[in-house]
Design a protein around this nucleic acid. Structure first.
Lengths: 223, 223
DNA sequence: GTTTGACAAAATGTCGACATTTTATATGCT
DNA sequence: AGCATATAAAATGTCGACATTTTGTCAAAC
């Protein structure tokens, strides 16, 4: 049963779209391990839909980079190598720079106020890795979703989701949280002060610091 | 009949993948006009495959941003509004900056040599809009494909393809071609000199100049 | 014991059909 | 004439079935 919305046209989520969201969330939440094979039949029975719908959903999740599909060999949860993790963070850093540059020049007073609130919440969460990770995502997402580009927002959030586990890993370190918080303080100050280039620089730095910590922890894990 | 390749695993293009390429190329080439509806049945009979394959192909082309699909309302060639064109160029500029930064720090002597050759070809094409447009794409693509990131390459080229018609429009202006050529000379010099930040800055500028020219011409067209 | 090959099982690729929604057409009323 | 409604046509959404390819198993050969 389709629900009318406030949009000009009635939009209802198609079945494959719903399944895609659920699969994507399961991956981000770690329910499916990296490299794990996702068989169409299994998912179809799990979600109670036909294979065709699952198939289309998987292509959708592939677009987000969360699964990798090989012809005749099916889908598996994307397992990033160390260079690939670096790559994803790199691109994300560049895009996040663009986001914060734009946000600085276009934010309304209400938005700046909200940004301050989110910074306070980030500070409040500085002693808990999981909470800090969530608060960090919240403040990032706020900026991302308020620069007036759905395209850019989807892109940045997609890259963020691809490295969700590495964010959590990085923020498990108390020292890293202190560094991140200091960085965010500077970023908010730059935004408030209207210094777009500085905001861009700091936004990049923020993501790259997360990257470096995560990669170092990953290397230690193996070594 | 599947052809073996030099890859570890045999890769053969699945049917929807082939159709997706053909549809995408047709859009970039202007065979389908912006806003034109693409009906699954029509495409299926045109390419001699089933609707299911066309359907999957369309989702693939949607990922590239070339078509827009609305639930229950089908696919149509993406028609960008002026702000959206600006948006796409903006994101592309940022990513192209990253590409050229990376290229500067990682290019081999052979690559720099090839870059010089492509710059010469660009210069040779400066009196012909269409030829210049092609040469410009060629030199861009060369950088993009040689920074060691398939992810980044696909992303940048996708954004470039979305604005293909505006590139051509922009390079129809002789003055614009002179400006572009000067910019490319500076960029190649920065790459050769190993000045990555300057290469990044110029790469961005290059894309943004194309954007501004295209938008101005678009505005004049209407006014 | 390892490897090769054939065979069986399972997974993906592709298709055609039916269900539901949207869009176009025609009919009737003010 | 113009608009609202009902009906018909067309397009997309979803499904199950069959074809092809990959994967797993087991026996025979070296």
């Amino acid at each position: 049963m389709a629900e009318p919305t406030s949009e000009t046209y009635r939009i209802y989520a198609t079945l494959p779209a719903q399944i895609a969201v659920r699969i994507g969330q399961a991956i981000v939440d770690g329910e499916f391990a990296p490299g794990e094979k996702l068989r169409e039949v299994d998912l179809a029975s799990r979600f109670g839909v036909s294979r065709a719908s699952v198939r289309e959903a998987l292509r959708s999740v592939e677009r987000e980079g969360l699964v990798t599909i090989l012809p005749q060999r099916g889908a598996q949860v994307t397992a990033l190598s160390a260079p690939e993790v670096q790559d994803v963070f790199d691109i994300r850093a560049s895009l996040m720079g663009l986001v914060c540059h734009r946000f600085t020049t276009s934010a309304t007073p209400q938005m700046r106020q909200q940004l301050d609130r989110l910074l306070k919440e980030l500070r409040a969460a500085r002693d808990d890795g999981e909470a800090y990770s969530r608060a960090s995502l919240a403040i990032s997402e706020f900026c991302v979703r308020n620069v007036g580009s759905r395209r850019l927002a989807d892109l940045v959030l997609s890259f963020a989701r691809q490295t969700a586990r590495y964010n959590r890993l990085s923020f498990a370190s108390a020292e890293r949280r202190r560094q991140s918080l200091a960085n965010w303080r500077g970023l908010v100050a730059a935004v408030t002060g209207g210094d777009a280039p500085e905001a861009e620089r700091l936004a990049r730095q923020l993501v790259l610091d997360t990257r470096d910590t995560a990669l170092k922890m990953l290397a230690d894990e193996k070594g």
